[in-house]
Design a protein around this nucleic acid. Sequence first.
DNA 1: TTCATATATGCACTTTTATGCATATAATAA
DNA 2: TTATTATATGCATAAAAGTGCATATATGAA
Lengths: 142, 142
Amino acid sequence: MHKSAYMNMKKYIDIFRSLSDKTRLRIIRLLIQAGKELCVCEIMDSLQESHYNTSRHLKELKNSGLVKENKVGRWVLYSLTEKSEEFQGHIIHAVEGIPKDVFVTDCNRLKIRLSLRKEGKCVIGLKSPEWEKVIKQVRVKK
Amino acid sequence: MHKSAYMNMKKYIDIFRSLSDKTRLRIIRLLIQAGKELCVCEIMDSLQESHYNTSRHLKELKNSGLVKENKVGRWVLYSLTEKSEEFQGHIIHAVEGIPKDVFVTDCNRLKIRLSLRKEGKCVIGLKSPEWEKVIKQVRVKK
DNA sequence: TTCATATATGCACTTTTATGCATATAATAA
DNA sequence: TTATTATATGCATAAAAGTGCATATATGAA
C-alpha cells in the first residue's frame, strides 16, 4: 500500500487503537457518563489507576482527537471533543452502546468523587486523605 | 481493576483492537463495499497483500466476531456477521462513515476482481496469471 | 492414490505498546 | 523567592503485535 493511502487511513486507525485499551476505554466511558469536564485526579480516583497512567492515557486520547483539554490554573480539565465528523459520532455511540454494568464500579466511584466538589469544582487533589476515607467506607459497606 | 471487570470489557476492546490495523480495516471496508461473501484470494488481490497476511488478519477478525466464514469445498468465503448487538452496529456504521476516497484503490480492484467471477463464483484462485494480466493493464492506464 | 491448489499455522525477528519508577514542568500560595 | 501541588514525561522492562518464510492441512481433480 502506498504511504499516502496509509496516511489517509491513519487518523481512523489511531482512534480505534486509542479505544483498544481498557484504561482508555474506561476513561471515555467515564467522560460520557459525566457529561462534563473532569480533572485528572477525579479520573484517576474513579478508575483507581496511578496518576502516571491516567495522565499518559489522557494524552493519547487527546492525540487521537477524542478528548480535549482545558487548562485552568494548575488544574487540567478533560472532556470529549465535539463530534465534528460523522465517524467520531458513531464511535462515541458505539462506546455508549456497551452495557452499563461493564463500567458500573467506575461510575459509582465517579459519582462519589463528584459529590466532593465545592461549587462545581474539584478541590481535593490527588492522594487526598478525604477521598481515601470516603472510598474506604464504600468498600466496608460491601 | 478486577479480572472479572476486565473480562466483561475484553470483548469490546478486542473489536476496537481488530480495527486498529490498516489491513484489517481495509478488509472490513471491502466486505462492506462488496455486500456479499468474498473468498480469501479475492480479498488478497483487492488489497494486494500476501496470502499469509490476509489469512491471518481474517482469522483475527473472525475471533473478534466482526466476520464469519463459510466453507465451500476448499474455498472459504468471508462476510460480515449479522449485527446482533447494538455495539457492533455502531462500529460498522463508524467504518462506513470513513470517507470513500480512503479506500478507493482497494474498491476499484475489488470491482475488477469480481468481474472475473463466473456464475457468481470466484474461479481463478491465487497467483492467477489472468488476474496479473488484468491488473497490469489497469496500472498502465494510469 | 497421487497431484494440484486454496487456505491456515508455527517459528523467528522486529517494532510497538503498557506500565512503574523517578523526575520534570508549571501554577498557586506563603 | 520558595514551597507546595496538579500534571506531564523520559527511561527501562516486559508483553504483545505485525510480518515474512517455510510448511502443514484439506479438498477436489486426475
